[in-house]
Amino acid sequence: MIAVGERINGMFNDVKKAIQTRDARIIQDLARRQTEAGAKYLDLNVGTAAEDPEAAMRWLVETTQAAVQTPIAIDSQRLRVIKAGLEVARVPVMINSTKSDPEQLDKFMPLALEHNAALVCLTITAEGVPQDVNKRVEICANIVAKAQEHGMPMDKVFIDPIVLPINVAQDQPKYIIEVIQQTKVLSDPPPRTIVGLSNISQGTSQRALINRIALVMFIAAGLDAAIVDVLDSDLMDAAITAEMLLNKQIYSDSFLKAGRM
C-alpha cells in the first residue's frame, strides 16, 4: 500500500502554528518522522486558517523537500493553491484532489500531465457524494474514460471513493469495498484507488481500532493507497501484514520493517 502521511495539515494545531510563524522545524520533523515510519508521499495541506494560502503552500513544499526527498501530495480544494505548490515542487507530486465533473477533469488532467504528477479524483460531482455503488462506479468509469482521452497513464490516476464517518453512514464501508473491487475491471491496467482513511472513525470512541480494521478490509479488496496517520505504528503494522498475507510482499522475519522501506 502506498501510505500517504496525513500529518502536515493545517487542521492540526502544531502545523497551523508552524505555518503562521513559518517554523520550519516542526514541519521538517514531521516530514522526517513520517518518512521513517513508511510514508511514500507526504500530504501537504495549509488548512483553512492560512492568511495567504498560496504563499503558505509554497513554503510548505519548499520546507518539506529541504528535509526529505519523499514525494508530496499537494492537498487543496483550490486550483491556484495547487498550482502554487506545483511551481516549486522538485520531488514527485500527487495532486490531491479534484472533483470528477468532466469540466473539472479537463482542467486537472492536463495540469497533472504537464507536471508528470499523479491525480486524486474524488467520486464527487456537482450532484454531491453518491450514496450507492452504481453511481460511484459510473463516476469511476467516466474518470477512466477522461484519463484515456487525455492520455494519462492509469498508474497516475488515483480514484477516491469517499469514505464517510461510520456514525453518519454505516452502510458505506461495504459500498467502498465493492467500488474498489469494481474499479479493477474498468480498464487494463486499472486505475488505482485511494481513501482518506481517518474520516471513517470521526467522532467515534475507538478511532484507532476502526481505522485499522477498515484499512485491512479495504486492502483485501484491492486498495492501492491510503492517506493515513503513518505514525500510528499499529495501523502500519496491520496494513503491512495484510499485504504480506496477500503475497504482495515476500515474507521475512523483519517483514514489518521491510514494509516501511
Binding site: I250, Y251, S252, D253, S254, K257, A258
Partner: peptide, 11 residues
C-alpha cells in the same frame, strides 16, 4: 529459502 534470503539482506 526466499524468506531467509530477504532476511539476510535486511540484516
Amino acid at each position: 529459502d526466499i524468506n531467509i534470503q530477504k532476511q539476510v539482506n535486511i540484516l
